[in-house]
Design a protein around this nucleic acid. Structure first.
Lengths: 355, 355
DNA sequence: TATTAGCACTCAGGGAAGCGGAGTGCTAAC
DNA sequence: GTTAGCACTCCGCTTCCCTGAGTGCTAATA
């Protein structure tokens, strides 16, 4: 059965007050807030029913009510009004996102930091796992007889390079040959295919060249491995301590450790990266450490159909409306920054270069 | 006046007990521990003098004594015995350091994480600020008519690349010309010189080429900026909460925030990166947030005469002997990993490539 | 002079008790 | 269906007391 309009208003008032104050909300307070023109007694009756149906909870007899995860869920799905970002907020976000066009890792890292500052919650950011990335091409740059740089480009447009130093000598023309070999033999292969192919080639190639091929292909393997590992950037972990629910160490500690080690890909595996802003409340989280937390995420575009995820973690008591709005805005900005190629003769970039 | 032998033994006993237990140490306990064959009353007298001379402190009348920063300093300088790493410890470190030859950033990041796990304290790691790095060379790789990759190599052997997409078209030969222009005009310049040079060139070059030059030089600027910014990697911040002195939130919070924002180069500017293992105790720290903390650091070799720093932060009560030993070992390992070039036909690397 | 034993004193920390207040549930009236 | 009134509950805070570890001091001893 649907909740009556009044009960919804009460639920909403409870949630919005609780989100602000972190204190259980009493019937009197709701009466004042919700503008319902009914007495606190009436509201008491309704609140009793909301408890019964699982939308609210009482920490103990005769404290006020606090929202249950189910209550938050209803609020998020139906009751919450879209939060309108203030001009200051959009400005602050824009400033924070006015990142130089750095390596992708850096951009994402800084975006996470910006979000942490903005929301006062710990933030995480990650790039989606590109399962089937392949090497698109190799470039070998001659440095001197004893060293060269290998540049590897994947079909997800990631470019990585590495300086190799050797004991033997190598001429530019030899290097060029090597490049041709690599580009004909080892492009278009996924991580899983790369090593077998290397073994296959080992049988035909001459020993000297093979050692070099192996070096560069190993590097390519590392690049693909790195991409499939999707490091989770976290920022602002200490922000957790600002919030009253984490005043008690026992509550804060597990979550902080969890965030500290979030690299282990736990986070992304468990939350479903659905398009747009995305809210996971308390027990909806699969990960044990997040059972009492809320997670708000937004996905952004990495180009080539790939998605990244940026979000914050906090207590279930969060201003979901505001945070989703902020995240959505950041994600949009990120998509643009990443998608936007460096255009020549673009004034903005000219300026950026000199800062 | 020098401390008597017995007083030193007492000081040492107090420190080593306090480091273990985090509880003030009483005269009786010292009598048991320090094997001095004198009664607790004698020790009480000596301890009273140690307090008077600033080596010990009393939290209040009639609690035991705890070491003061001055006491720790004496301990670190004279009393502490070299900690011998156990075989397990060296093994664990070796495993943790058995990093693939990744980008430098990654290596350092992972080393920091390893140290955090190992010591149970938050760790930081950074590369020393290379003040006078210049661009050594540019390479431009043709991708297609609308995009190319710029590879920039600095004289500190850092190599960075970036993919540029443009709206106008560009032929390989044009790209080659552009590369020559860049290599003749913009190599050997420091960050400070790069922008003026760009302005100078602007007057002579034709507009079309200039836009491209500017793009790539801006990128080079960013690379040098990035290098001069020396990001501080932190890991294991939540480890702080494991230690009793940070059970009270008020103590933990400022330090955690400090570590969270350590990127701001605060840490490295304030602590003097002297060679070898390095201990800074409590008020010796210049940064306010570290006034009650101990910092243990070790520097490692980045090659080319440059140094990096890796260390941990904790309460003043730390097992300095053990931690310096661990850090020194890690730093040594790091130097080797970084210094060691990828040698062809080296069995070890062959194996690594296939894992 | 250095060391020891003995003893009164101090103080942090923890538990018990008491209280005030916010908020409830229930009943009876509207 | 709504409201007013009232007794009741229970958390959180403060206060008080007690205990025990460890001290400082004094007087005796080597």
């Amino acid at each position: 059965m649907e909740l009556s309009e009044r009960k919804k208003k009460i639920l909403r008032a409870v949630i919005e007050s609780y989100v602000q104050t972190a204190e259980p909300v009493g019937s009197k307070a709701v009466a004042d807030l919700a503008q319902l023109n009914v007495s606190s007694a009436t509201i008491r009756n309704d609140m009793a029913e909301l408890v019964e149906r699982g939308y609210l909870e009482q920490p103990h007899t005769s404290a006020g009510r606090i929202p249950s995860p189910k209550g938050y869920r209803l609020y998020v799905n139906e009751l919450m009004e879209d939060y309108k970002l203030s001009i200051q907020e959009t400005q602050r976000i824009n400033e924070a996102l006015d990142l130089k066009m750095r390596a992708l890792d850096r951009v994402i890292d800084e975006a996470g930091q910006a979000v942490a500052r903005l929301t006062q919650y710990p933030a995480f950011a990650l790039t989606a796992p590109p399962e089937r990335v392949t090497i698109r091409r190799f470039d070998l740059l001659f440095v001197d007889q004893n060293s060269f740089i290998a540049v590897v480009m994947t079909d997800s447009n990631t470019v990585r390079n590495k300086l190799f130093r050797m004991e033997g000598e190598l001429s530019p023309s030899q290097l060029q040959m090597l490049g041709t070999l690599l580009n004909t033999g080892f492009t278009g292969l996924t991580l899983a295919q790369l090593t077998p192919e290397l073994a296959r080639v080992a049988r035909h190639a001459e020993t000297g060249a093979y050692a070099l091929i192996e070096l560069v292909v190993s590097f390519a393997t590392e690049v693909l491995e790195e991409l499939s590992k999707l490091p989770v950037h976290t920022a602002g972990i200490a922000n957790l301590l600002e919030h009253p629910e984490f005043q008690s160490l026992e509550k804060a500690q597990p979550l902080m450790s969890f965030l500290d080690h979030a690299d282990s890909a736990l986070l992304p595996a468990k939350v479903s990266p659905v398009d747009g802003s995305n809210i996971v409340i308390g027990p909806e989280n699969v990960s044990e450490a997040l059972k009492d937390s809320g997670v708000v995420m937004a996905s952004y575009d990495l180009g080539g159909g790939m998605k990244g995820l940026i979000g914050v973690v906090g207590p279930t008591r969060m201003d979901y409306a505001k945070i989703s709005a902020q995240l959505a805005y950041v994600a949009k900005g990120l998509s643009q920054i990443i998608g936007q190629a460096a255009l020549p003769a673009d004034d903005k970039h000219t300026k950026e270069g000199t800062t």
